[in-house]
Design a binder for these strands. Structure first.
Lengths: 203, 203
DNA sequence: TCTATTTTGTACTGTTCGATCTAAAACATA
DNA sequence: TATGTTTTAGATCGAACAGTACAAAATAGA
């Protein structure tokens, strides 16, 4: 037996499901129903696996949600990372808002944004998840602010615009778009908000 | 016995609590923990009444939440009605945003806005509540839009600003402020967003 | 003091929750 | 075919949930 190599050959009964596909399904259920609103039965039905498989592959409900959130950041919400690479502050804002609308306005997606749909207010049991989502949002804000600070040094952010203020303002609009989408507003509605924002943007 | 008058004299054991005070307490619990995150035990403890009294006075949990929401609209969220009476479109916006910040920035209040904390995403059981909250928010938007349409006829809304677009944009900022507050941002943080909004407001 | 009426306190209902236990099933290796 | 290992399916766990039943308690009127 070769102890130095990681086992590439699997013993025992093989998996009857694809972990990636199952996680994607879990993410969408959480996105639609929120953390507390999603039951283990909801999850197992959507993921098409049973409880034992869920627990052995993903840990408990809270761990599964955290993995779903990470996947959300790298998948549906990846527009953020793309936007941060735009060449100027104005282009960052334009790309960011367009990405948000593409995500929130896509009728194939659950309504709203996972980070706000997941848990804004909770009972005692789900408080760690609520806090994780707050951290997630604040992390995104921090990245945007960092990008605007860079823009300041590169000269494409006016002197009278504070990077932190701009970040907070922009974040508010983005969060607001999430609520509008949760309200059932269409992509056209969301685009009107974005148009107004860009029209009045002081840069 | 006088049949024409409504009974002012109460028979039986008198109430041991004030219905108004109890409803206020219930409102704050829902505000803090959301609809699904609030248990009947949370409610009875905060309201300082027992289950039987709760059910006989307020009906079931869903009915109680609806009454709490109505109270929220007439109490903490009454700034909306005040703002709508401001003399010009710009003054409406200023008053509205100031009212929002006063509410969301008050550290004595639960974090965030009841209408979004209550239920954005839910399991099957709470879907009626989720929809009631959507209706509540849309109702507020409709009132604002109506006010801006009036402003248009009164000449204090520029021709190139669509009342509906302005309403949607403003609603987004307000919803966003609710999320920022839920994130734990302070009144000063919220005021920065309001300053930026007013600074760039096209009217 | 007695009766009618209403509220209160508490035990209890059935259901659903997240999580676990057990044994059968499905594979690789020998 | 026999053995070891892992996954699957389903039963089951105690706790918490929303809601209810019922008798004791507290009042007004007779």
């Amino acid at each position: 037996m070769n102890m130095t190599e990681t086992a590439t050959v699997k013993l025992g009964r093989p998996r009857g499901f694809c972990e990636d596909t199952a996680l994607e399904a879990a993410m969408r259920v959480f996105w639609e129903k929120g953390y507390e609103g999603t039951s283990l039965t909801d999850l197992t039905e959507a993921m098409r696996i049973n409880r034992a498989s869920l627990y052995s592959s993903f840990g408990d409900k809270e761990t599964l949600f955290r993995r779903a959130l990470a996947r959300y950041g790298e998948g549906p919400a990846a527009y953020l990372k793309v936007a941060l690479q735009a060449p100027t502050a104005r282009r960052v804002v334009e790309t960011l808002l367009k990405g948000v609308v593409d995500l929130l306005g896509n009728p194939k997606n659950p309504r709203g944004c996972l980070s706000t749909q997941g848990a804004l207010a909770t009972g005692l049991g789900a408080e760690p998840i609520k806090n994780a989502l707050i951290e997630w949002r604040k992390g995104a804000e921090a990245e945007i602010q960092k990008r605007f600070k860079r823009a300041r040094t590169e000269g494409d952010l006016p002197e009278d615009i504070n990077p932190g203020d701009l970040t907070r303002y922009l974040s508010s609009v983005v969060y607001g778009l999430g609520i509008m989408a949760a309200n059932g507003d269409t992509k056209a509605d969301l685009n009107r908000v974005v148009d107004m924002t860009l029209r009045t943007l002081p840069l």
